[in-house]
Amino acid sequence: MRHGPLVFLAAFFALSASWFGFVLTPQVQLGRSVQETNSVMKAELYPNDRPGNARQGLEIYRANGCVYCHSQQVQQNGMLVNVVLTDAGKNTMAVADLLNEEHLGNFSGPSVGAGLPKTILTNASIDVATVLAKNVKTAGGVTQLRLVPVGPDIERGWGTRLTVAQDFVADATALPGSLRVGPDLANEGGRHRDLNWQYVHLYNPGAVTPKSPMPAYKFLFEQKKIGKQASPDALQLTGELKPAAGYEIVPKAEAKALVAYLVSLNSDTPLFEAPLTPPAPAKSTNAPAK
């Protein structure tokens, strides 16, 4: 070889450059990332460590290869912004003029201040919405932005915002997955909080989601003779799945850990890097004292 050292140096340089780019830089940027204060909840740490045996559940999830068919990353294409006027200020004429000029309604001075808060602009881009909010502020009014992330995954109900690196900080192994034979699980805990649903789904997926191609994980459960009284976590099964009289199906420790992990998957907290305005609950839960 005529240029041995040169070839060696070139190969070394090429490999080390990619190592710096793909390994070292992400490690410096994200590897030391700690639980960060998220912008909406002011002082709370996010993400919390997974509670109790949910941490072991992650290992069960990994050992059973769930990650090969389920991703945990919600994607987002864009964001729609609604601008809500919460206060028209003292000089309502100025705000009314501004809105009329922008063709956002036909207001006389006092009518702007009636029926607040009211939405003055819907489904706008970030830039348009922030410009309007600044203009209203200049005119003396107060507005708030309502952020609605959009994308195919969000339409499917798999989550409310895009998944970011911060979502995985509490896990020793990040399992974002890459293949979607089954639905995305980034927000599984938000969709199915019922433990019995989760157990029955693992025991026989077809029982709760017809035509599911998911294999049954019956080896995570055991059939037991009912003792003095039925176990509190025995599966509530119906039809053909029902065990013989006097017997019950109970989850093994692995199934309990796995379900604890699945229920802990909940990524709809607004973050600085993935903002959203959580939709208000359908019915009021703040009932007055009776």
């Binding site: 708030q144 932005l145 600085f272 903002p275 609950p281």
Partner: peptide
């Protein structure tokens, strides 16, 4: 965006 969002709904 963060500055313009307003406080979260307590519910």
């Amino acid at each position: 965006i963060a500055a313009m969002q307003g406080p979260p709904d307590p519910r």
